[in-house]
Amino acid sequence: MEAFFQTYFDFQIIEDNFGYVLEGFWYTIRLSIVGGILSLIWGLILAVLRQLPGRGLAPVRWVAIAYIDALRGVPLLLVIFLISGGLGALASEGVIPEGLGIPRWFGLPDPFWYGTIAITLTYGAYMAEVYRAGIEAVPRGQVEAARSLGMSHGQAMRFVIVPQAVRKVVPPLLNDFIALMKDTSLVSVLGLVETVQAGRDVYSETFNASALTLGAFLFLAVTIPLARFVDWLIKKQDMKIQRGIP
């Protein structure tokens, strides 16, 4: 028992490395927020493309669907390597400018941006599916009412469908965000010292896992309140449904 606590809860080690792990966690937070916001936007674009009406736009829909299927079907880790390796190689061959191939925007290192791009590409696909479910959950009569008032398809989407879909997609999007946040740890493979890598660094120095435990608690400090918030939102919506409100 003593040994167990020593290995996982050595407060001396936690104290000594608190700053280091917290610095890593600050990367985790930034990856999550920037990647999360970009995924939200990219996912919405994909969902709208996938929903475009008419026969002429069928190829656009197909491309969007193929993209979504592909990115949901391969591991994020692989996408991270594809992006970092690919962009780096293209830049060194001069196909794309170096600022794009080895991005160091806002003073953040290139692994951060490779990770952000990979996360956006993958989670955008997941979120596109969430948006789609939300759009499809809006009753057909809503589009018809909008169209019968003379709104274009785009106007009906923008003013009638999307605002209603948003309410339905907030809980599942937050769930995706929790998953995204945990997946940011994969960016450590590019040498970014985020929470997990920081914990591992301490471990390889001390052969003690306490810094990893600290990392776990830092994650939980964000994910548990978020999960509770999602539950609360869902419960609130269920209560509305019980009262017969759409």
Binding site: P139, G141, Q142, E144, A145, A146, V160, Q164, I245, P246
Partner: peptide, 8 residues
């Protein structure tokens, strides 16, 4: 429409 279809 029969179902009103107001924007909720």
């Amino acid at each position: 429409f029969q179902q009103f279809n107001l924007f909720p």
